[in-house]
């Protein structure tokens, strides 16, 4: 395997990592700040992709679709928050897991009723459809670079919002001591709804960004949800920085692992074994990584200060 290919695979890993970050950003906000386990995050991701597909079909424009995704995913998020999660804030995680599991069932089946059973179309936006040659003879899809850009932008926005704004200050205060901030006259209920809406928006945005490269279909969020959880658990719950670092680590680890491992194994084992055992182990890599990290650092790589 040439050095150039190794470099290209590393770039692929970073890109995949940033994509993972896009999916996990909203989840880590909700989990870290509100201490709510939201399995419906994957469903919100799926809804974002379905919305995107519909909006693009209506308007023909990726950008307008983006503008429409903001209100639609935020409103959906707020509805979910008000109807199902608000009464569960003070309950244990088990209740949150089950209620949001119910939401997954509902949305996975619901999209089939509304949009039909077929996977939905979603073209790559014209502007980003081309390729650039980062490495010689290896044109790289512009849309993937665009994903990296959006991912980093999201990270910057969240950092700015939480660390530099008044709302962010209240959010941080609410996360560390709910009683106190309520006593000081802040509407914590509104604050929670705001954070959840924000999380829903990031999920919807991830759905929009994923739709042109993956299949827009019922259940598309299920596996993504698991990946997102792996990311934020490794990164440390509630830590946006941790999520970013963990995403990129996982991305590179997984992509480089799965492309190199079968080749490396062929040098040691017979071809037959290497061809099947290699990918089998590669598909477990991130779970092994997660178990390893949690064994040594039970709070993840970047434990957030607030529990």
């Amino acid at each position: 395997m040439s050095t150039l290919l190794v470099l290209e695979q590393t770039l692929n890993g970073i890109q995949f990592g940033v994509f993972l970050f896009l999916i996990s950003a909203g989840l880590t906000l909700v989990l870290g700040i509100m201490n709510v386990v939201n399995l419906a995050h994957g469903a919100l991701f799926m809804m974002g992709a379905y919305f995107a597909s519909t909006f693009v079909a209506w308007t023909g424009s990726f950008f307008i679709a983006f503008l429409l995704i903001i209100p639609s995913s935020v409103i959906l998020g707020i509805i979910i928050e008000m109807l199902t999660l608000r009464p569960l804030y003070l309950r244990d995680h088990m209740d949150q897991v089950l209620a949001t599991f119910g939401l997954i069932l509902f949305f996975n089946e619901g999209v089939k009723l509304v949009w039909g059973v077929d996977p939905q179309p979603m073209p790559t936006p014209e502007l980003f459809a081309g390729n650039v040659e980062i490495f010689p003879d290896a044109p790289y899809p512009v849309f993937r670079l665009f994903i990296i850009g959006v991912g980093l932008l999201v990270a910057a926005v969240i950092y700015f919002l939480i660390a530099k704004t008044k709302v962010g200050m209240l959010i941080r205060a609410g996360a560390s001591n709910t009683q106190m901030i309520r006593a000081m006259g802040v509407n914590i209920r509104f604050l929670n709804t705001f954070v959840f809406g924000l999380g829903a928006f990031f999920a919807g945005l991830a759905g929009l960004m994923a739709a042109p490269i993956i299949s827009v279909e019922s259940g598309m969020g299920d596996e993504m949800l698991i990946l997102a959880f792996v990311v934020i658990v490794i990164g440390g719950i509630g830590s946006v920085r941790g999520a970013l670092v963990a995403s990129v680590i996982i991305g590179v680890f997984e992509v480089v692992g799965r492309s190199m491992l079968p080749i490396a194994m062929q040098k040691i084992f017979p071809l037959e074994i290497a061809q099947t055992a290699g990918p089998a182990i590669a598909s477990m890599l991130i779970y092994i990584l997660m178990a390893g990290v949690l064994f040594f650092k039970p709070q993840g790589l970047f434990p957030a200060r607030t529990g």
Binding site: G102, L105, F106, E109, G110
Partner: peptide
């Protein structure tokens, strides 16, 4: 599941 999901939420 469209019925079952919301029922689960209500139950919780």
């Amino acid at each position: 599941p469209v019925i079952f999901g919301p029922l689960l939420v209500l139950l919780v």
